[in-house]
């Protein structure tokens, strides 16, 4: 019995998976092991699943730990299914209680939490959320190198990036970011005025770009840009994890939201609970006064 950490070659969350694995191994009182498939071997869901299935059957770990990355989302559920288990995904904390692991996961995009108990015999499968288990300086466990084992059905081409971005949000010292609270494309000027008053770039959460109200290149989050301005104002944004990973490193964060329980307030330094259609115009005036 062991805790097996799956290390995604070259991914920045590998250290976080190790931290989680180390913590779970200590709690369960079993050794920590790790495995990886080197970056020069092409990723496919079929190939990775087969390789790790063989390894897990041979070593019978109590728990297999992943970072909750896009690649993990693509194949780890297949692996878990081969063992008739659920991948307990995107967990933010864990403990051992009466002999079995209990994981904390968010529901409803972070509005509620749940305790999920992994029942029955292992292996159990768990992926950890970005930022929940920060990497620490510690000795790395022995890491086994695996090779994709089957002829995959997927035939992947080379990854590419869309043409260079016209706006580089990462260079902006101040960002005003707008979310679905703005309700309608016609209301975008409300936040544009605030951005103008602050000399800020305008950015957005994903739904705003999905709807075409602002161009994709202004999207902040896991599938957009990662920004760390000295001031980030989130207007009508709920604070789903995929948005937070793109902006929580900002120096000062301000949230404006009518829901006092919106998860965005958890990462904010300052907040106004209220209707953005009243608050934002008032803020424009206050900023103009302060600057004049």
């Amino acid at each position: 019995m062991s805790v097996l950490v799956v290390l995604e070659a070259g991914h920045r969350m590998a250290g976080e998976a190790l931290t989680a694995g180390r913590q779970f191994a200590a709690a369960l009182g079993v050794p920590l092991t790790a495995a990886t498939i080197p970056a020069d071997l092409t990723y496919t869901a079929d190939g990775f699943t087969a390789a790790y299935e063989a390894h897990a059957r041979a070593t019978n770990p109590a728990l297999v730990v992943f970072a909750h990355t896009y690649q993990t989302r693509d194949w780890a559920p297949k692996l878990a299914t081969r063992f008739r288990k659920v991948l307990i995904s995107d967990v933010i904390a864990a403990r051992v209680d009466s002999g079995s692991p209990v994981f904390v996961r968010q529901l409803f995009q972070g509005k509620l939490n749940s305790d999920v108990r992994a029942t029955g015999d292992g292996p159990h499968f768990v992926s950890v959320q970005a930022g929940a288990f920060p990497p620490v300086e510690a000795e790395a466990p022995e890491t086994i190198s695996l090779t994709p084992a089957v002829e995959p059905r997927q035939n992947p081409e080379k990854p590419f990036r869309e043409s260079t971005r016209a706006v580089d949000l990462t260079a902006a010292p101040v960002i005003v970011s707008v979310g679905r609270g703005i309700k309608d494309e016609g209301n975008i000027p409300v936040v544009q005025k605030l951005a103008d008053a602050l000399g800020a770039e305008l950015a957005a959460s994903r739904p705003i770009c999905d709807a075409g109200w602002l161009p994709m290149e202004r999207q902040v989050g896991s599938s957009g840009q990662t920004v760390t301005p000295k001031l980030y104002l989130a207007v009508g944004i709920s604070g789903a994890i995929q948005h937070l990973v793109g902006m929580k490193g900002s120096k000062t964060i301000v949230a404006i939201n009518q829901d006092p329980n919106a998860p965005i307030f958890e990462v904010a330094d300052y907040g106004i609970v209220g209707d953005l259609f009243e608050v934002v115009p008032a803020l424009v005036e206050a900023v103009q006064r302060a600057k004049s």
Binding site: K85, S114, V116, A118, G120, D269
Partner: peptide
């Protein structure tokens, strides 16, 4: 094999200054 035992409001850890 993944039983929800409890659903609850997350504990607030960071106190933003709210106006």
């Amino acid at each position: 094999t993944a039983v929800i035992e409890k659903v609850y409001a997350p504990q607030k850890s960071k106190q933003a200054q709210i106006f």
